[in-house]
């Protein structure tokens, strides 16, 4: 082999190596980001499965099983026993199940209101001609800038005042609507924005075809626009649901009765800072984030698409 040939070979190999290195770097950074993002979740899951004797030790054990070489043979060695005891305590001795149900009710109610009202307003703002359109849009968007805490005290006083009146069961303390309505109002500008951005992308011919076929404006709305707006509805519902599931300030203030508390409040009030039942807390935390993880896995495409439709056109 001549010197020239080997030099050429070397160069080809170098380019190959460079490409491999780039790929490795890329996948390495993706993997690192995944690890950084998911490590706390892994740690919570692991902690929740540990018996108390393993939870309160330092240093901590990272894996329940390790593989070691024993007499020249690979052997799986158990480091500590895994237990579901923490989950039993969380569900039986603490009303974590109830908290989860409450959160689901509040989050679903909020999502339903925002999808219905947001779709209505978004449709009008995007596809109907009328006066003062921009002003109406700006008023709705302006509401998004108003801090949540600044609505807390008046709404709380209202809820107290309505206790015992006929409105009490709707908007009193410890009523689901007491959370659903403020949440829905807070996320409304976002919902309206997503819908109007989505409707902006639809071709004008859609309504025209319906009107030509003799449908009324309302008929067009229900027969044509409603079916095609499903993707925007899904996106709005998912994001609003996650928001309502996660909210804490209002949930803490409005739900004073333990049986009405949402999961965020339930977990936050689990114990003091120093003498906390971390086994039960981590079990409850894991149960509270499991639905969100499934959500992210199933709906992430919708979330990214929705953001693209809404924000990309900002």
């Amino acid at each position: 082999m001549s010197v020239l040939d080997s030099a050429r070979n070397l160069r080809v190999e170098d380019i190959g190596l460079w490409k491999i290195g780039k790929r490795l770097g890329f996948y390495g950074s993706v993997l690192a980001m995944v690890a950084i993002s998911m490590f706390p979740v892994f740690w919570i899951l692991l902690s929740s499965l540990k018996p108390p004797s393993e939870l309160f030790v330092f240093p901590q054990e990272f894996l329940p099983y390790t593989i070691t070489m024993q007499d020249g043979e690979l052997a799986v060695v158990q480091q500590f026993p895994l237990t579901l005891e923490n989950y039993r305590v969380a569900l039986q001795e603490r009303p974590v199940g109830r908290y989860l149900v409450n959160s689901a009710i509040v989050a679903s109610g909020t999502a339903i209101i925002d999808v219905i009202l947001g779709a209505m307003a978004g449709y009008a703002l995007s596809r109907l001609r009328f006066q003062y359109k921009l002003q109406v849009l700006l008023i709705i968007l302006f509401a998004a800038l108003l801090p949540f805490v600044s609505r807390l005290i008046p709404l709380y006083r209202l809820a107290i005042d309505l206790q015992g009146t006929v409105f009490g069961p709707f908007f009193g303390l410890n009523q689901y609507l007491g959370l659903i309505l403020p949440y829905a109002a807070f996320q409304m500008p976002f919902a309206v924005w997503i819908f109007q951005a989505y409707f902006n992308e639809l071709p004008d011919s859609l309504e025209e075809a319906g009107l030509m076929d003799g449908l009324s404006r309302v008929g067009v709305l229900f027969r044509i626009i409603l079916p095609v707006s499903m993707p925007a509805m899904a996106t709005t519902a998912i994001i609003v649901f996650i928001y309502a599931w996660n909210e804490f300030l209002f949930a803490l203030t409005f739900m004073t009765n333990d049986s009405r508390r949402t999961i965020t409040v339930g977990i936050a009030l689990f114990g003091g800072q120093f003498n906390s039942p971390w086994g039960t807390i981590t079990a409850a935390v894991f149960m509270s984030i499991l639905p969100l993880m499934v959500f992210m896995l199933v709906f992430q495409k919708k979330i990214v698409e929705g953001m693209t439709a809404g924000v990309g056109k900002a």
């Binding site: 599931w245 999961i263 965020t264 936050a268 935390v285 984030i289 993880m293 959500f295 992210m296």
Partner: peptide, 15 residues
């Protein structure tokens, strides 16, 4: 990977 990386966003702040 994307679901994992975006997951912290969906996490409730207090949790």
């Amino acid at each position: 990977a994307q679901a994992a990386i975006l997951f912290p966003w969906a996490l409730p702040t207090v949790i």
